[in-house]
Computed example of a mutant assay.
Amino acid sequence: MFAVSLVAAPGALDRSHVEAVRDAFGGGDAAWLSGGEAAEFAIPARPPQFAHVAGEMRMLGVDVNLLPAKGRRKRLLLADMDSTMIGQECIDELADLAGAGGEVAAVTAAAMRGELDFEAALEARLALLEGLEEGAVDRVIAERLTLTPGGAALVATMRAQGARCVLVSGGFTAFTGWVAGRLGFDAHRANVLEVAGGRLLGRARRPYLGREAKVAALEEECAALGIGPEAALAVGDGANDLGMIGRAGLGVALHAKPVVAERADARVDHGDLSALLYLQGYRREEFAA
């Protein structure tokens, strides 16, 4: 059995959307998880026309995903940080303060599309930050970072249901510590900026946390919990997230680059992070404060 999930921005999902998809797939009665935002229904097998229908609905502002009915609620969340749990790329914000914003942002975008080697791209961008005052990190946190809507509810609800939540980023611990603390993550992993004399040295401590390290983090966290990767949910937006997204039982591409959206189990293009709860079958009234 499978669950067909429909999620849209609040107020953007109406009964006609649900009925159109249900009629196309021959599903049963729909259950509303949140009025005007999320609904689902059951079907016995994957419809051959699923990709076509999902694409049509995506153009109408509705994310349609197909999920195995068994084991939907996950016991581990691994989340990327930049452009996932927050709305920014932290290295781009630091570079902007250093006067190299445009150059670094272009490299970041290419790396996240999978066009550049992650480690080489990281080193090239970090080199342009050499000499920047360490206080720039605090300025970015105070003045520029915004939390992605739905993130606090996602972490609080999964933790309330006994899941472990870990922030895993190719960014820097100087930022993941703040984000993890604000959102209530159990732990965070990221790269460590090297600093001396109150200024950035233009490099990070090796080994770098990139694509392979994110997969290793998933496997280590699963082993510590005594669960298989099928009980994990991984979410991200860039090419360096593809490994953990592919390894997890539920891999979600959130407002992601095409290379990621095309290969993930589920994609969220219109909803916020609370969509990850709806994908697991949670109703709005089950969300933790």
Rank of each mutant, 00 (worst) to 15 (best):
E221K: 12
I91D: 01
D14M: 09
R125T: 10
T84K: 08
G71F: 02
V179A: 12
A3G: 00
A31Y: 00
L77D: 00
G101T: 14
A288Y: 05
M85E: 12
A152P: 06
A136M: 03
G150M: 02
R58M: 04
A187H: 08
F2Y: 02
L233H: 04
G71R: 03
V137H: 07
L147D: 14
A20M: 09
A20W: 06
F50G: 09
L242V: 12
R75E: 03
R267Q: 09
L128A: 08
A239L: 11
I245T: 07
S34Y: 01
I43W: 00
A239W: 06
N191K: 05
F175E: 12
V260P: 14
A187I: 02
L126I: 06
L60K: 15
R72A: 05
R72L: 09
P149D: 12
D29P: 04
R283F: 15
Q161P: 00
E286M: 00
A136W: 01
T173F: 08
D23V: 07
L94D: 12
L279G: 04
V192I: 11
L6R: 02
G202V: 05
G246I: 13
L6H: 05
L145M: 14
T157L: 01
A275V: 03
I141Q: 13
A79K: 09
P68D: 12
F172Q: 08
V179F: 09
G135C: 08
V259G: 11
D29T: 11
M158L: 15
A38M: 05
A100M: 09
G226A: 10
L277M: 09
T148A: 12
L225S: 05
A69M: 04
A127N: 05
A69T: 06
A187Q: 10
L277V: 03
E194A: 07
R263L: 15
A127E: 09
E285K: 06
L250S: 03
